[in-house]
Every structure is written in C-alpha cells, then in structure tokens.
Amino acid sequence: MSAKDDLLALMRSSVIDGDAGRAEQLARDGLAAGLDPLEAIEKGYAAGIQEVGTLWEQGEYFLPELVAGAESMKRAMAVLGPALSASAREAGRLGRAVIGTIEGDIHDIGKNLVGAMLQAHGFEVVDLGADVQVDRFIDRAEAEGADLICASALLTTTLFNQKRLVERLRERNLRSRFKVLVGGAPANHAWAEAIGADGYGENALAAVRAAKKLLGRG
C-alpha cells in the first residue's frame, strides 16, 4: 500500500473512530503532502462517514458515534474546503438546505444531528435553530436561496406545524420553489405524504438519502 493509501485509510478511520482532532491533523498533513483535497474527501473522510452509517444501520453505532463522526468530518472539511478548486467545489455541491425545529418545539438534538450529517455528506446547511416560526422558515429559505427546507418536530402537538409549513408555502405561492423534508420521532412516511411534504427520514442517515433523492443526487 502506498503512503497515500495509508493516509486515506487513516482519514477514513479518524471519522469512524470519531477522533475529530486526528481528522483535522490528517487533513493538514494531507495538504502539506500535496494530496488532492477532493480525493481526501471522497476516498478518505466521506468513505469514513459512509462506514459510520453502515455501522449505525448494523446496530453497532448509536448517536454518540454518529455525532463524533459528523464532528470529525466537519473539522476536516474546515481545512480542506478552502483548498478545493472552484470547479471541484461546484461539482461537490449537492444543494443548500435550511433546517430548524418547528414552531413551539425546543427539541433540537435530532435536528442538529440531521444538519451535521447533511453537511458531512456535502450539503450546505443553514441552521435556523429551534422553535422556528413557520413564516420565518419560508423567509429564510427565500433569503438563502435554499433548495430544501428541513423541519423537525418532536411533540405530537407541534407536528401539526409541519402541516402548516406546507400550507403556508402554498398560500405564498412558493410550494414548487423548495423541497420539504420532515422528520422527528412522532412523524412518519404516511404523515409526510398526508401533509404533502416531499420526503421523510426516520433518522439522520435516512434524512441524507431522502435529501439526495429529492435533489436528484441519489
């Protein structure tokens, strides 16, 4: 195995192990050694986060490992991103998402995780925080030129505000402008369909898959 392969393998495992400090250091080492940042991302870190997803799906990993993996990815990207060529950046651009917890709800851990995983998989993510008024979601999505609105709800009562979000988009004649992705423990596929959302994800990985599919990248 070449030194480059060794380095890529280390990058991969830094994400799998959730060692953010090591991930960042390896990114610097890689750039110093002349490694192509796009290759470091695709064959190193992104492969690592894929593996984290697989381990999650096998039941081996749980939320702490997911969070640590996403954080490692983020720290590496902070180093590698600026070094990407403009074309590589454009090619890697999956889309822009605004994400938030819906009006009336302060549960934000799941939302943060979905945001981090979307980012780790190459989306640009604008986090609006928790208890986000329905109209603010829409205003910000317009202002940011977003492709995707992601709304999280953890309470049976606030779930209904996801429905209002879709309704408001229609009322404001903006429904076709954005794809709407909903999630959170009390939501499910049937709910998403019933309220006329475009997609649903039962966990952070499913959220990434759904987002990619919606934007024609899956």
């Binding site: 749980f62 939320l63 702490p64 969070v67 302060i106 934000d108 851990i109 943060n112």
Partner: peptide
C-alpha cells in the same frame, strides 16, 4: 433544561 446550552453535549455523552 431546554435553555441549558450544555444539554445536548451532556445528553449525547450520557447515552453510553
């Protein structure tokens, strides 16, 4: 606890 900024980090670490 909702307004405690340390909630998320502590919660995630408490999961193990």
């Amino acid at each position: 606890l909702a307004s405690d900024p340390a909630f998320q980090d502590t919660y995630i670490r408490s999961l193990s």
